[in-house]
Design a protein around this nucleic acid. Sequence first.
DNA 1: TCCCTATTTTTGCATTATCCAAACATTAGG
DNA 2: CCTAATGTTTGGATAATGCAAAAATAGGGA
Lengths: 145, 145
Amino acid sequence: MMLIKQVGVMVNILNCKLKKHIASVFKSEGINLTAEQFLVMDTLWNQGEMTQQSIAYLIQKDKNSVTQFIDNLEKKGLVNRVVDSSDRRVNNIRLSKAGMAMKDNTKNVAIDVLNDIVEGISEEDLRTFVKVLNKACDNIEKLKE
Amino acid sequence: MMLIKQVGVMVNILNCKLKKHIASVFKSEGINLTAEQFLVMDTLWNQGEMTQQSIAYLIQKDKNSVTQFIDNLEKKGLVNRVVDSSDRRVNNIRLSKAGMAMKDNTKNVAIDVLNDIVEGISEEDLRTFVKVLNKACDNIEKLKE
DNA sequence: TCCCTATTTTTGCATTATCCAAACATTAGG
DNA sequence: CCTAATGTTTGGATAATGCAAAAATAGGGA
């Protein structure tokens, strides 16, 4: 019961601290991305060109948010919207040269940040942690139905 | 390595889903509070009257954010700012009658929501989960120094 | 071909959270 | 007293998110 309450509070707190910390490290490394923009870029680096909808699904944000993320990434010259040749409603989001160029460094910085943050946590606990994160998300999804 | 990346992504996703879900349940229960406003109210319900600074520390937000939270709660008539009698710089934040009145119902709704969300997760895993949340927060704090 | 509906994305508008820096009022120490 | 420190507010900015309506296009009948 005390434990349960911790969950709500601490997830909120960790998320804020995490975002703030990543923003600060990115800034000092000259990487101009918010946490959410990084999620999009990381998805594109891993999966290649894809539609806004697929991005929205993968990072679990709504379409309006993704539109804004892509707007901002496009302004920064990191991605381009390319109209799909077979369905002109669809935008394929493609990494620009600049977007590709920052991949390795940014990924390394992100991994380093996360490694620092999980310092001193056993692999087993980390595995449990991620398992619980996923389960909780699933539960919320099911509650919507 | 794959595991580590999950941490960053999933904490972000869970936090968003959690906030959204709580907002939706609160709305359908006629409770007019955002997740952050609830954190403040819950702190006041548990600890009684306290300064903005103590609230900021307990919910780990910065003072500007807390000023805004209190502004909004005051507009809703749930709390009052009471100037401290021994140090006039300090605002003591005091629950109003309306703020007290919603305590039991709101706490019950929040507990129910969280219980639904951790459905099917063992107490042991939950304990590990909270432990990791705390450790990760501590690590971030230490990285600042 | 034309119409209706569904799909993908954008737009406009609103709220909220968060940050920074500067201002303000008040207190406390030399 | 004067100065530095403290607790809070303000103004100005960016970002994430939500909702509803609009725009563009696709696809399936009639």
